[in-house]
Write a protein that binds this DNA or RNA. Structure first.
Length: 612
RNA sequence: GCGCCCGUAGCUCAGCCGGAUAGAGCGUUCGCCUCCGGAGCGAAAGGUCACAGGUUCGAAUCCUGUCGGGCGCACCA
């Protein structure tokens, strides 16, 4: 909530107590464009019932009782609404000068995203995961959280084993002409086809590789895939704090440690008779009421653990219930930030860092994993530990829907797939063609095309809610107009252009006469003033689309302002041609529009070029 | 069968902890560069907010039910 809306709420509450109402919900909202006033409240409605009086009368009475906060010119009852008129100059000056208060320090969040199998190139289904997770990390940090981004590497799974075995099976060597993960992915697909003729030999070979993987003998092989995939993730603008390798989790004994914790729980038992005789089961019914079958098998009667049990151990570690991993630096990422990795030969606190111990745990995983994710979360509650209970209350499965391709479910088998690298290259290519046409001779064209293409791609993944299925279509995903990142970027570049011209004329530091501003500037400033609340809500609800929609709102408001014409049909919001003083005030506002657009885009991991 | 999610304009979506005449983009039609960047702006057309009840001064928004669609529910990983 902005300073002004906060002050208005306080003023209304004070007026309420003056007329004898002590407690009420006071919503302060922007008034519709065609109604008088700038901010308003419908609070009189809510009081109508308890006071048993006409809301319009109450509104009138409240207006009488109001003491207007600084910067508010007037309050009127408009029917049952109370509408406030801000002092344009003071309001805009306040918005322009407002500094982002450093957000209060909030609890540490362990956020897992990406977690792509290390056996082939990532595709646009993964793109949604990465972009969502990365945007959430940025938004949570902006909201004051410490965020540790983890990327889980399943290096003991069947998929990794098949790809690595395929290299031997086909006696293939990477010649460097293709990106390594793509090359390996093709072998993986070929191996799948070859199973039709040679199933037994392949099965035996894959199985042998799986055992070697579990012993950690093929770490370097897997690492090569991981590094190749990381190139793609970095190209997307995503960075991580820690890679957690499944083989390290295995050797860290997380499975056993997790089970040890759970076995102390009254909800976990080992029945000696009935259908679960000999198995270790967890009764989740008191946390998940309404289940037909309250028992979840953690360890089978043959002694083999279920996959969820391993996952539970990992989540326990994230919450700080136990330790057991060591770490070392893995690489320096494009931004200069260090990426660490779990490693058998590492240290507990490399460079003084402490990993895990999340007070909140966020897992970005697609919606089809909802059931196992619920079980994992429930296990935190059953752990009987303070850390587990805290993490249980604050753990979230960010369940996002799938991405389809031109209306069809993605399927490697049917060849319905699209790699992130291809999508990114095509997006950049298209953006470049447009930049060349619109702005020939632009010196930084490569970088601009990259930012615009990537922006379009990321924005398409972020602009709607996570629970909506996204159908990836080229024209839509790479659209450079309408509801898109380039639309916002264009608005930003246009603001930059004005500021550049002002600098060239030597007026960029001109003294501002904010009193010369009017309602058009107030409208624009109101949108700017919304950002802090948007960030707070987006962080609380893990909803980056709110930020994306906000960026569109601000760009639209700014474009509308920029193109505004007076009753005579002439532009009436020109900046550089305005009188001195007014010009200074408008320049200050434009500069704030510019920085706010850039900030909103940055929260989505999208760059804002000065020219495009 | 049970559980979760979705259903808003021709298409893709916002709006959803109740509030002013339900908003965008794409597509269609018309208009706007002697004016700081037309990747833009303005306007027109397009809606029984799936349906039926209920709660309320007020429901796209909350509750119940129905219909349609998607996903998930192993001693698999």
């Amino acid at each position: 909530m902005s300073d002004v809306t906060h002050a208005l709420r306080e003023a209304v509450l004070a007026a309420l107590s003056r007329i004898g109402v002590d407690d009420a919900e006071v919503a302060i909202q922007e008034v519709p464009a065609d109604k008088p006033g700038d901010y308003g409240t419908p609070v009189a409605f809510t009081l109508a019932r308890t006071l048993r009086r006409n809301p319009a009368q109450i509104a009138g009475e409240l207006v009488e009782a109001l003491e207007l906060p600084a910067g508010i010119e007037r309050a009127d009852a408009v029917g049952p609404y109370i509408n406030f008129h801000v002092d344009a100059g003071a309001f805009v000056a306040g918005v322009v000068a407002s500094e982002r208060a450093p957000a209060d320090a909030r609890p540490k969040v362990v956020l897992e995203h990406t977690s792509v199998n290390p056996n082939k190139e990532a595709h646009v289904g993964h793109l949604r995961n990465i972009v969502l997770g990365d945007a959430c990390a940025r938004i949570l940090r902006a909201a004051g959280h410490e965020v540790e981004v983890q990327n889980y590497i399943d290096d003991t799974g069947r998929q990794a084993a098949e790809s690595l075995f395929a290299k031997d099976y086909f006696d293939a060597a990477h010649d460097g002409s293709r990106k390594y993960d793509h090359w390996l992915g093709e072998l993986y697909v070929r191996l799948g086809d070859a199973k039709a003729d040679d199933a037994d030999a392949i099965e035996a070979g894959v199985s042998a590789v799986m055992h070697r993987l579990e012993r950690g003998e093929l770490r370097a092989e897997v690492e090569r895939v991981v590094r190749s995939q990381l190139e793609t993730f970095h190209a997307l603008g995503a960075e991580y704090d820690l890679l957690v390798w499944e083989s390290d989790v295995v050797h860290g004994g997380f499975l056993k440690r997790g089970l040890d914790v759970l076995e102390a729980s009254p909800y976990v038992s080992r029945p000696t008779e009935g259908k679960y005789a000999g198995a270790l089961v967890m009764d989740v019914s008191s946390f998940l009421p309404g289940l037909e079958e309250p028992n979840v098998v953690l360890v089978r009667s043959d002694g083999n653990a279920m996959y969820v049990a391993k996952d539970i151990g990992y989540q326990f570690w994230k919450a700080g219930i136990f330790e057991g991993l060591s770490f070392r630096p893995f690489e320096v990422q494009p931004s200069g930030a260090s990426l660490y990795t779990s490693a058998p030969e590492g240290e507990t606190h490399p460079d003084g860092r402490t990993f895990a111990h999340g007070a909140e745990i966020i897992n970005v995983i697609d919606v089809r994993q909802s059931h196992p994710q619920t079980l994992v979360r429930t296990a935190l509650a059953l752990s009987g530990t303070d850390e587990g209970e805290r993490a249980f209350r604050n753990s979230h499965h960010l369940a996002y829907e799938v991405v389809t391709l031109e209306g069809q479910p993605m399927s490697g088998r049917k060849g319905i797939t699209l790699s992130i690298d291809e999508a990114l290259a095509e997006a950049t290519r298209r953006a470049r063609a447009v930049v060349e046409e619109k702005n020939p001779g632009l010196a930084s064209i490569d970088e601009v095309a990259r930012q615009v293409g990537l922006g379009a791609l990321r924005f398409g993944m972020l602009k709607s809610e996570a629970r909506k299925i996204i159908d990836f279509r080229w024209e839509q995903a790479l659209s450079l107009q309408g509801d898109s990142a380039p639309y916002v970027q264009y608005a930003h570049a246009r603001a930059c252009s004005i500021l550049r011209a002002a600098a060239a004329e030597g007026v960029q530091r001109e003294e501002a006469d904010f009193a010369a501003l009017g309602p058009l500037e107030v409208r624009l400033a109101q949108v700017i003033a919304r950002l802090p609340e948007v960030i707070a809500t987006a962080a609380r609800e893990l909803a980056p689309h709110l930020v994306a929609q906000y960026a569109l709102d601000l760009a639209t408001a700014w474009n509308g302002y920029y193109n505004h014409k007076g009753p005579d049909g002439r532009p009436d919001t020109q900046v550089l041609k305005a009188e001195p003083g007014l010009r200074g005030a408008r320049l200050a506002l434009v500069d704030r529009v510019r920085s706010t657009l850039a900030e909103a885009l940055a929260l989505l991991g999208i760059g804002a070029p000065d020219e495009m």
